[in-house]
Design a binder for these strands. Structure first.
Length: 315
DNA sequence: AAATGAGCCAACCGCCGGCAT
DNA sequence: AATGCCGGCGGTTGGCTCATT
């Protein structure tokens, strides 16, 4: 006999995650840490399979995920790495720790593949005129031919970018998006799914490693007053979140129409603390650098200034 | 204004290797 | 040793948004 199944297939919810589910998952992971995904849905009270929870966390909720447009340097890295490694998205993502493999895969399929095709057919003069990108594309595809016998070896994979001066995205952006979605979808479901709760608060702490600072905010869910995002200190330094929280509130009717189920409790006295721990770049795996890794370091240094300035994509 | 198509992306599906039982 | 789940991965899809007709 093997292990018991992780979850019943009956009664498992599918489809897009609601902000309420996100909150539940985040708070569970904050409390219990990452570990046995099999136990997560049951213990957290989520009607999802463990796989869905893990995917949601790794692709969307975990701290440090950078979203939005890809910088020219990121694009070039993806193109180069794809040429070297093939569709090994997880391996490619290991060199871009702020991006998920899913994001990179999507970006490749929806943007880069077309652009490369266009470039190869000689139609994209703008692309060809950009020396940096041209060099990446040229060397990538030359190397693909030269190194056609090489294979990616995960055992020797050095998380190179941990050694780079990566700009870590604040998890506040993720959570602000989450809360924004929560507000939009709130008419149907209560965030805390507790029909008896009068009030509940979610207190979140985030850090931006580059700024060495902490940012606090609270989401207050009150049966009488509705939802409120309560900014605390240093909000102004997270521009995107600061913008997102403006005007986020709903009235009592929203609360009343949204009472369903009971997943996590909430009361005036209860608080759920979400402490999102940001990872700082580590200097581990100090192994000798391969040709690729040296190249990436070199290119990263070359593009550091450009990326920091937030230049728009080339394409 | 309505219909249609394209683009995008979050989430699912299915496979595989490793490992717990 | 055999069984079958877990976790990771790449491929695919469904549904949403936006642009065009």
């Amino acid at each position: 006999m093997g292990r018991p199944p992780c979850c019943d297939k009956v009664g498992i919810k599918k489809g897009p995650w609601t902000p309420e589910e996100d909150i539940i998952l985040i708070s569970y992971i904050q409390e219990h840490g990452l570990g046995n995904w099999r136990l997560v849905p049951t213990n957290a009270g989520l009607l999802r399979c463990s796989k869905s929870c893990r995917l949601r966390w790794t692709n969307y909720l975990r701290p440090g995920i950078k979203r939005g447009y890809f910088t020219p340097h990121e694009e070039a890295m993806i193109i180069h790495l794809q040429a070297l490694l093939g569709n090994k998205w997880a391996a490619i993502a290991s060199y871009l720790p702020q991006r998920t493999d899913n994001d990179i895969k999507n970006y490749w399929n929806t943007h880069l593949k077309k652009k490369i095709k266009k470039f190869q057919s000689g139609l994209d003069t703008q692309l060809a005129s950009d020396l940096t990108t041209y060099r990446f594309l040229s060397t990538s595809y030359n190397e693909k031919v030269l190194n056609s016998s090489s294979r990616y070896d995960s055992s020797s994979d050095v998380r190179l970018t941990e050694n780079l001066n990566s700009i870590y995205a604040s998890s506040a952006e993720n959570i602000s998006r989450l809360l924004e979605g929560w507000m939009k979808s709130s008419p149907k479901i209560s965030p805390l799914n507790n029909p008896t709760a009068e009030c509940c608060e979610v207190t979140t702490t985030t850090t931006t490693p580059t700024a060495e600072s902490f940012h606090y905010y609270r989401l207050r869910v009150d049966k009488q007053e509705g939802y409120k995002i309560i900014p605390s200190i240093e909000f102004e330094s997270i521009l995107s979140f600061d913008q997102n929280i403006n005007g986020l509130a709903c009235d009592k009717s929203t609360w009343d129409s949204s009472q369903k189920g009971s997943e996590i409790s909430g009361s005036d006295e209860e608080k759920v603390n979400l402490v999102v721990h940001e990872q700082k770049p580590k200097m581990e795996n100090n192994l000798p650098l391969s040709f690729l890794e040296n190249w990436l370091l070199e290119e990263s240094a070359n593009h550091e200034g450009e990326e920091a300035m937030g230049l728009p994509p080339i394409f």
